[in-house]
Amino acid sequence: MATVMAGEGGFKARDIGLRAQKKILSRMANKNVAKVFIDDTTGSLLDNVYKLAKSYSNDKKESEKLVKNIIKIVIKLGVLYRNDQFSKEELCRAEKFKQKFHSTAMAIVSFYEVDFSYDRPFLVNSFDACHQGLKAMVAPHLTPKSIARVDSVFNFFKDPAFLDAVFRKESPHREALGRVVRDINKALEEGGM
Rank of each mutant, 00 (worst) to 15 (best):
residue 1 M to P: 06
residue 2 A to R: 11
residue 8 E to K: 12
residue 10 G to K: 15
residue 10 G to R: 15
residue 13 A to P: 02
residue 14 R to E: 13
residue 19 R to A: 15
residue 21 Q to T: 01
residue 21 Q to C: 01
residue 25 L to M: 11
residue 26 S to Q: 05
residue 27 R to V: 04
residue 28 M to G: 00
residue 29 A to Y: 06
residue 31 K to R: 15
residue 32 N to A: 14
residue 32 N to G: 06
residue 33 V to K: 01
residue 35 K to Q: 10
residue 42 T to D: 08
residue 44 S to P: 00
residue 44 S to W: 11
residue 51 K to V: 00
residue 52 L to P: 07
residue 54 K to V: 03
residue 55 S to N: 12
residue 55 S to M: 04
residue 56 Y to K: 12
residue 58 N to G: 14
residue 60 K to W: 02
residue 61 K to A: 15
residue 64 E to C: 03
residue 66 L to G: 09
residue 66 L to C: 09
residue 67 V to C: 09
residue 70 I to N: 01
residue 71 I to V: 15
residue 72 K to D: 01
residue 73 I to Y: 06
residue 74 V to G: 04
residue 74 V to C: 07
residue 80 L to T: 06
residue 82 R to L: 12
residue 82 R to M: 11
residue 91 L to H: 00
residue 91 L to E: 09
residue 94 A to I: 05
residue 96 K to N: 13
residue 96 K to F: 04
residue 97 F to Q: 01
residue 98 K to R: 13
residue 99 Q to A: 15
residue 101 F to H: 11
residue 102 H to I: 01
residue 104 T to V: 10
residue 108 I to W: 03
residue 109 V to G: 05
residue 110 S to K: 14
residue 110 S to L: 13
residue 112 Y to V: 08
residue 117 S to T: 14
residue 117 S to M: 12
residue 119 D to G: 11
residue 119 D to S: 14
residue 121 P to S: 13
residue 123 L to F: 10
residue 126 S to A: 15
residue 128 D to Q: 05
residue 131 H to A: 05
residue 131 H to Y: 14
residue 132 Q to P: 05
residue 136 A to V: 02
residue 141 H to E: 04
residue 141 H to V: 04
residue 141 H to G: 05
residue 142 L to H: 02
residue 143 T to H: 11
residue 145 K to R: 13
residue 145 K to M: 10
residue 149 R to H: 11
residue 151 D to P: 02
residue 153 V to Y: 01
residue 154 F to V: 04
residue 157 F to N: 07
residue 158 K to E: 07
residue 159 D to L: 01
residue 161 A to P: 00
residue 166 V to I: 15
residue 166 V to M: 02
residue 174 R to N: 00
residue 175 E to Q: 12
residue 176 A to C: 05
residue 177 L to D: 02
residue 178 G to T: 02
residue 179 R to T: 06
residue 179 R to D: 09
residue 180 V to T: 08
residue 183 D to A: 09
residue 184 I to V: 15
residue 188 L to A: 04
residue 191 G to Q: 03
